[in-house]
Simulated assay, not measured.
Amino acid sequence: MRLLCLCLAWLMVGIGVVGAFLPILPTTPFLLLAAGLFARASPRLEHWLLNHPLFGTSLRLWREKGAISTRAKTGAVSLMAASFGLFCFFGNPGLPLGAIVATAMALPALFILTRPAE
């Protein structure tokens, strides 16, 4: 079971790192999963991830307080709005598709905005 958790954790880290470069793929949820899996399999790797210079602060903030930094909230919601604007401008969707995409983006944005800020 430990080996399975380690393999899955590294897979989540890989997907999270790819998500740092692809706007459609989130980073933090995958790294949170990785931290949880590392907690079961390797406290040393969990410690490494939670103290990572780039990702550690946001992971610890979420784990300890369920909070998202104001900067991360602003960036996430702004990129969602910009993505929707580009989708509408270049894709010229009809009303039904536009409404589906708007809802699909609004629900995560609402979740992000209702989390405590730190």
Rank of each mutant, 00 (worst) to 15 (best):
S58L: 02
R44L: 13
W10A: 15
R44T: 15
I68P: 01
L54G: 04
S78V: 00
L61W: 09
G36P: 07
P116F: 02
A41H: 03
L113G: 14
T70N: 04
G85S: 11
L11M: 10
L22V: 15
L25I: 15
W62T: 00
F111P: 06
I15F: 10
P53N: 06
V17Q: 09
F111I: 13
F21Y: 08
L32F: 11
L110P: 05
L97P: 03
G36C: 13
V18F: 10
L33R: 04
V77W: 04
M12L: 11
T57E: 12
V13C: 07
P43L: 04
R40W: 07
F84W: 05
I24A: 15
L61C: 02
G14W: 08
A99Q: 09
K73V: 00
L6A: 13
N51P: 00
K65S: 13
P108N: 09
V17Y: 08
H47V: 01
T114M: 08
W10H: 15
G16H: 05
L37R: 08
V77P: 03
L4W: 12
W10I: 05
P29S: 12
S58H: 06
K73I: 03
A9Y: 01
R2S: 05
L32R: 11
G85I: 01
L59E: 01
F84M: 09
L50M: 13
N92G: 15
P96H: 04
L4D: 02
T27C: 14
L110T: 15
L33W: 14
A35T: 03
L11C: 11
A102F: 11
G19Y: 07
T70V: 12
L49P: 00
L107C: 13
L3N: 09
W10C: 15
L33E: 07
H47Y: 14
T70L: 14
P53V: 04
S69K: 03
A82V: 15
R40I: 10
P29I: 12
C88Q: 09
L79M: 15
R2A: 08
